[in-house]
Amino acid sequence: MAYTFRSALFSLDAERAHRAAIRALAIWGSLGSVFSSDMVESPIQLGGLTFPNRIGLAAGLDKDAEAIPGLFALGFGAVEVGTLTPRPQPGNPSPRLFRLVEDEAVINRMGFNNGGIDAALARIAKLGPRKGLLGINVGANKDSTDRVADYALGVGKAAGHADYITINVSSPNTPGLRDLQSRPALDELLAAADAARAGTPIFLKVAPDLDRAGLEGAIRAALDNRIDALIVSNTTISRPPLRSPHAGEAGGLSGKPLTELAREKLIEAAEIAAGALPLISAGGIDGPDEARRRIDAGATLVQVYSALVYKGPGLPRAIAKALAR
């Protein structure tokens, strides 16, 4: 059945398939416990929170918080929605999302398309008790004249609804956004987020394209500003050898070709942080074996997204079971 559903989605262009998947998950979640199975329980502590298991959904799939119950029903211990900006914005022109089937990869240049944080928080407020932890990923509007203020506003609004908040300064699809990963800009941003958090844990998400000095600067800024964890990493603008006809598309690359780079950056981050900052690994995790490698390399939790496109909805539960063992 899962294969049939995947075939139906692959018959659509990537963005239409994405929307169809969100609608299906929203419907599934609305049916409650009828089709949901028990979550794999293997509790782990991070940032003062107890995560039910080590597998989380990375931001980008459920941008507008439309399918949270359905995503938890897949077995995720944590679901991260967004990226959400203070004001609604359409994102970049289409086409902007590409499946690289031959490479089990995705290239996107979505550009923080979302209906705005207020609309998403209104949906979240209507939900009942959650099976796992909810993360809200926040960003700045493309045309903002004060991006630090955008992040502080997002953090302040999300604080009453999220179990944790992720600061996304690592998307390559908003011009100039990645510049905020460098000090002193990052210190200013994180200090503003810290002041607005109202006690909610904050995670910082960085790009895999940072060199060692840039990664060290981001980690030091995170420690100096009481950030609770580092997510390593987002999509890459680098291009390893690819076979797909879409290989030349601009945007962030995710999926299997990111595996080696994301693992290397995790190892580097673990060396720099030396246990002082918890790490969450994302990028190119496509099954239990790679998830275990990331835990062994220093991650406390792992996140997936693009692998769901190719491995299907059973992936989070399979990873959770393997890591629980």
Rank of each mutant, 00 (worst) to 15 (best):
G139E: 10
P69H: 02
A125E: 15
I117M: 10
I136S: 04
G139H: 04
T145R: 15
E188R: 02
M110C: 07
L134D: 00
L189E: 00
A119Y: 04
V169W: 06
M110H: 05
L134V: 08
A65T: 05
V138S: 12
K131V: 05
A192R: 03
D103N: 03
L97G: 08
I136M: 01
E104W: 01
A149N: 15
I136G: 06
A65D: 14
I117G: 03
Q89H: 06
G176E: 00
A120L: 01
P69E: 03
A196E: 14
P86T: 06
A158R: 01
T85G: 05
T145K: 15
G70S: 10
V169S: 05
S171L: 11
P88C: 07
I165P: 07
R130Q: 12
R109L: 14
G75M: 04
K126H: 00
G156F: 03
R178Q: 13
L84Y: 07
R197G: 11
N141Q: 06
A67V: 12
G160P: 00
G132H: 05
L133P: 05
V101S: 14
I167W: 00
G154A: 03
V101M: 09
R109Q: 15
F72W: 04
K157Y: 04
G154H: 08
A193I: 08
P93E: 12
A162S: 07
P86N: 03
E104P: 00
D118Q: 09
D187I: 00
T174S: 10
P175Y: 14
G111C: 01
